[in-house]
Design a protein around this nucleic acid. Structure first.
Lengths: 245, 245
DNA sequence: TGCGCTGGTTGCGTTCTGCGCAACGTTCGT
DNA sequence: ACGAACGTTGCGCAGAACGCAACCAGCGCA
């Protein structure tokens, strides 16, 4: 919509992958370097980018405070944090918190497994909607119009043999999720990893986030993961009850 | 330089202070709400802002990953981290790491005092140049042209009776800092808090950051703080030596 | 020491983009 | 059911942003 702004944001995202020179950026965006320079200068003034002595551009320190603010603005995160820690300690497994944002589901908090099995997922990046427990939970909670819209726009990338690959199949799955109040992911995103996820519902009934527990099957098989379900549901219920205080 | 981008950045900074409605932003920037909407939409696409169901605008989750990237791009921070932790544990006092960025000095890391005396300072915000130890250290390290330029543009806000309030006085102080290799702040920024700071110098002689230790005088008087100086200088030397590996 | 190259910076005319207006929707509250 | 408040859309106009071309500055190399 706003061309120059869109380009500026592209620059920021590009810098997110590492520092760049002026015409590196120019070729990357396919615009004249004058244009890039003007945008960089504007962002430099407000410390969104900085330029080191060798004229390499990097992200600036304004992002620190903005990210902190963004974190605090996610009310769920603050409320959920202590409960997630407890869940993480009790189960010993990887715990994720995710929220719906603008057609996507974003991880906004993560607690690693006590075993050193680290999962590849990162705070701030989108989760796949069709093959993760949090994705299904939050998608299922959307109003019908949006849900249907998304069902048709999703890219049904097949990560594993179990991945759901079409809107019809996913629609059925979402109905199930909504009726039972939780979702699973049986090695649909990463082979050998099973997840269960449940929505955080505040008093008025609005879903404000989702929590999931992920377990590699070298530790627990699917049936054993299901035994964690009561604990997960108790956790999300407690967060939801605490939400409006 | 780029009007629309500048406005967009203003929006982001405004959102950093809390969520806003559309015409709240419009009046704040003093532009037509159409304009604000267009900018918001552009930023929404890339998840720099998000809009909740009640049309309140907030910062988006893209900032999470960008801030992480910004953090990693500060090489000093990563190198310094373990040394700072040790310094913090040995002294028990508040430790700051700051870097020069585009005419300003920014805190990029902070370790709180083991006593529960929290200092008011925050990662990502600029430090005053004329009355903080890190400010003096980094200003003193700038090439003469820039240094003189800054000396004249600084706002010499008087925080305490000890605050330096003019360019001439500060110039003398900086000469001292450069010759002795460290700086102090004797209750110049906050009454009752003394600091000492020293530069991190990498092999080639370039100053890449500054470390400071801050102590409220209820814990230690100025002379006692000075006893921490050898430890501070050893720390900055170690970081500098480790820098190019 | 001079030359060419790479990469950043500046001034300027053209054009497209971003601007604000005015009218339209939509969602509240009463 | 009505009105007010706020978000949204379409459009014509002006000026902001674009890219060109020329200019610097630093560096490596002969």
């Amino acid at each position: 919509m706003s061309q120059s702004l869109a380009r500026a944001l592209q620059i920021l995202m590009s810098l997110g992958e590492g520092d760049r020179s002026l015409d590196q950026l120019a070729t990357e965006l396919d615009v004249h370097k004058t244009t890039v320079l003007r945008l960089l200068r504007t962002m430099e003034v407000e410390r969104f980018v900085r330029r080191d002595e060798a004229h390499r551009y990097r992200l600036g320190s304004r992002l620190f405070s903005l990210a902190d603010a963004a974190r605090e603005q996610h009310v769920v995160r603050a409320v959920a944090a202590p409960y997630l820690r407890q869940l993480n300690q009790r189960t010993g497994q990887t715990v994720h918190l995710a929220a719906y944002e603008n057609g996507q589901v974003i991880y906004i908090d993560k607690l690693d497994s006590v075993q050193s099995v680290r999962m590849y997922s990162q705070i701030g990046v989108p989760a796949a909607l069709h093959c993760t427990a949090v994705g299904k939970v939050l998608l299922a909670a959307q109003p019908k119009r949006q849900r249907e819209g998304l069902l048709n726009t999703i890219e049904y990338h097949r990560f594993t043999p179990n991945t759901i690959t079409g809107p019809d199949e996913l629609r059925d799955e979402l109905d199930l999720v909504r009726s039972q109040g939780w979702a699973h992911d049986r090695a649909e995103h990463e082979s050998f990893i099973n997840c269960i996820g449940a929505p955080i519902t505040e008093r008025s009934g609005r879903v404000v986030g989702a929590v999931s527990v992920s377990v590699p099957d070298v530790l627990l098989n699917y049936e054993q993961v299901l035994e964690l379900l009561p604990d997960l549901l108790a956790t999300t219920a407690a967060i939801g009850a605490d939400y409006n205080n």
